[in-house]
Write a protein that binds this DNA or RNA. Structure first.
Lengths: 247, 247
DNA sequence: GGAATAGTGTCTCTGAGACAGTATAGT
DNA sequence: ACTATACTGTCTCAGAGACACTATTCC
């Protein structure tokens, strides 16, 4: 382990002799595909440690940059998106040995983006690609992630699950106009359960301001055409859309 | 601004030339007093900036120390408690200008402790004392906190409020044996509302494993004696004890 | 017409809240 | 006796879920 910063000499630190720590911002970009369910954006590492393994996009926080700014920059570099529909701080990971090179404290962020055009156009896009969350977490197949990133992804999915209970952010996974069955598919992908179509529709429409009707329908699913909605102005859902109990 | 660590020379950082950042762990120690309601542990700063102002206890994370370990150490130094009943990571604060001396990223932790013996016995206890949350946040009186610590305390109280909805951690504010009215007082202090005694009791007893009856009672409140309970083994409350809607 | 999907109606059950009534202490 | 507090009973209402039923498309 080689540090370039001064190592503190006494147990009582002051502002001018602090432990050498690198702070990074990593982003868990989640999206929902109609075909492949919940997916996460991962990059392939080009150098040791964990060379060739998949990892979360991220990088050092710059000297005059806020944490969220850094996350937003990383997101833009990897996906080309300048305005993320939803970006929030998730949790901070700082175990002393999580990076073998040096002490790295990572502030993880959660980003929810629609499925269209996520991968294209990143300036840093050497190998950034979407992967099903199930394989990233080693539940199906095994694509073991670098560092402790599997744990971070698991935390992110968990957080997304509770987030969509009380806020309308599930709509950020969808294009501007969507149907209730589309929205239901998002909930089912994140929660990993099947929901009753009728009850789900009733609940969503009963949540004031969650969705707004356009008076148009869309067909093509081989059944009755579904009505089109847009996201409403509400920022919270009360009472919440509770996820079914685990069994 | 004087850095002792190497300033990165190119926009592309590697592990050996990273931005100089100090990482600290600060702890929001909350407790509930029967007389004064929700309180937070604060220390008086002995040096600039914000000399003489109140601040959260905290300090640098040491090179081989996990973030939670650092928080636990700070807690022990300030309160003398070696085993905190409840300690969890809250959020990380890293605005570039939040400390005028240098770039400081603070990982904040939330600790819930019983009211007895919290202040006594800290090795670092020069002025660590409990203060009502209302005054710390400037709602009653004005004891403006140093740095962005008021925002951190506000986030902590908010988190505590949602935490006690779904977990039995409210019991960690109380001694080993307590009455239902004691527990109700904790919820009322954190949520800032009055709760119906009968409905609250029924809900708590209906939550499997939240509390366990001792078959004893305690008198002294000038009314019918209350039954004594201990904390149960449950780690979650389902369905949750929902807080009344704001009005 | 048959299958598939969207949407509606309806019944039941659970839980929250309002509030009246009962029990047991201090004064 | 009076008051304060702990506890119990009961009624009502809202919301969740199960599930039958209707509507409209693709084949």
């Amino acid at each position: 382990m080689t540090y370039t910063a001064a190592v503190p000499r006494s147990p009582k630190y002051d502002a001018r002799s602090y432990p050498p720590v690198a702070v990074t911002a990593d982003v868990v970009v989640l999206t929902v595909s109609a075909d492949d369910g919940l997916q996460v954006l991962l990059v392939e590492r080009g150098e040791p440690p964990f060379e060739g393994r998949l990892a979360l996009p991220g990088g050092f926080v710059r000297p005059d940059e806020d944490l969220e700014e850094a996350a937003r920059r990383e997101l833009a570099e990897e996906t080309g998106m300048t305005t993320a529909p939803h970006l929030e701080q998730l949790r901070t990971y700082g175990a002393p040995d999580r990076d073998p090179r040096m002490r790295v404290v990572t502030v993880a962020f959660l980003a929810l983006v629609p499925h269209v055009g996520t991968v294209v156009g990143g300036t840093d896009a050497r190998g950034a690609a979407l992967h099903p969350v199930a394989t990233a977490l080693g539940r199906r197949g095994r694509a073991r992630l670098a560092f402790d990133h599997a744990a971070i992804v698991a935390d992110a999915v968990d957080r997304a699950g509770t987030l969509i209970e009380r806020t309308p952010v599930a709509t950020t996974f969808l294009p501007r106009e969507f149907t209730i069955p589309d929205l239901r598919a998002v909930y089912e992908a994140i929660w990993g359960v099947e929901l009753d179509p009728g009850n789900f529709r009733r609940k969503v429409l009963a949540s004031a301001g969650m969705v707004v009707s356009t008076d148009r329908v869309v067909s093509g699913t081989g059944g009755r055409p579904a009505e089109l909605y847009r996201r409403g102005r509400a920022r919270t859902i009360d009472p919440p859309l509770r996820r079914p109990a685990r069994r």
